[in-house]
Design a protein around this nucleic acid. Structure first.
Lengths: 150, 150
DNA sequence: GTTCTTGCAAAGGCTTTGCAGTTCT
DNA sequence: AGAACTGCAAAGCCTTTGCAAGAAC
C-alpha cells in the first residue's frame, strides 16, 4: 500500500511537532478532531477554524494550525495540498489511501482510487530508479453536477 | 492527450493576464524565456529571478512573476505547483505532457510519463462521472543518486 | 510543579498589485 | 501618442512563531 507523502513544507524539522506532543486531552483538539470526523472532509484550515468556533467559541486560528500539525503527526488527520497551495485536511488513520477528483467549477473533492494506477505508478518509479515512498494524484474536471448545468 | 491544469490560484480572473499582452518584444521577457529554455527546468520564481539577473542586471522579481504569468498564458511556459506550494516553471508548448518524480532527499525533479496511467486516469474520472480536463501526478521517493548514498 | 496548550499579535515566505516612470509600436 | 512593460515598495494570503497566561498531568 502506498502512503501519500507531501513535500516538506517550510516547517523546519528541528522543532518537533508531534513525537510525544499532542497527547494531552484538550477540548479544542477534541473539537477540531470532531469537526473533521463529522464534517465533509477536505476542509481548509480556515474552514476547520470556523467550524471549530461553533463548538469552542474563542478558539484561535493558531491553535487550529498547531492542532492540525499534531494530529497529522499522529496520523489522526491527513493533510493534502492541492495545486492552489492551500492545505486541506481530512480524518485519517483508518481511512484507506485515495486520490482526488477535483471539480474545476465548484471546487468540490471526490475521493477515488484505482489499484491498477497504484501499481503502474510503482512500476513507473522503479523504471526510473526511484525508491517510491508516496504519491499524489489529482484529476481535474467537471463533476457530474456541474457538467449537467452546462 | 491530457493537459495538466492547475487549480485556480488566488489571481482573480477579472484582470486579464495574457490575452493580447506579453506580445511586445522585451529584453527581460526574452531573458526569462531564455533562462527556462536553456536551464534545467523546474525552477522556482526565485531561481528564475536569480538566473535572469545574470543576463539582465536589475530585473525585479515582480517583472519575473508578471512575465511568467504571461508566458504561461501564452503556453510558452508551464507552471506546476507541487505540494510544497511553491510554483515551479518549465519551458512549455512543444514539450509533451509528463508527470514528475520528486526526490524527497535532494528535491530534484525527474520527468516521466506512462501512457497506461493516463488512460486509466481517464477511466477513473469517467467512472465517477467527471469530465476530465487535466491531472497532476507526483511520485515521491528517493532518486537513484540519493538511494545509493544511504 | 513541570510540561503542554492556548490566544494574541507579530513575523515569515511566496505572490500580487498600485503607481509613476520607461519602453515599445 | 497610446498601450504595454518595468522597478519599487506596499500589501495580500496562508502559515508559523514568540510570549505570557492558562490547563493538564
Amino acid at each position: 500500500m502506498i502512503i501519500v507523502i507531501n513535500m516538506p513544507r517550510k516547517t523546519p524539522p528541528h522543532k518537533k511537532v508531534c513525537d510525544c506532543q499532542g497527547s494531552r486531552r484538550s477540548r479544542r483538539r477534541e473539537a477540531i478532531l470532531d469537526v473533521l470526523s463529522s464534517g465533509e472532509g477536505h476542509l481548509s484550515a480556515e474552514q476547520v477554524h470556523k467550524a471549530a468556533q461553533k463548538r469552542m467559541p474563542g478558539i484561535g486560528i493558531a491553535t487550529v494550525y498547531r492542532a492540525l500539525k499534531c494530529l497529522c503527526g499522529c496520523g489522526k488527520v491527513l493533510e493534502f495540498i492541492p495545486s492552489d497551495g492551500v492545505a486541506r485536511y481530512e480524518p485519517g488513520g483508518d481511512k484507506p489511501h485515495h486520490d482526488h477528483l477535483i471539480c474545476t467549477a465548484c471546487g468540490c473533492f471526490t475521493e477515488a482510487v484505482d489499484p491498477e494506477i497504484e501499481r503502474l505508478q510503482a512500476r513507473l518509479a522503479a523504471k526510473h530508479g526511484y525508491a517510491i515512498s508516496g504519491h499524489r494524484l489529482e484529476i481535474y474536471g467537471l463533476c457530474p453536477c456541474c457538467a449537467k448545468k452546462k
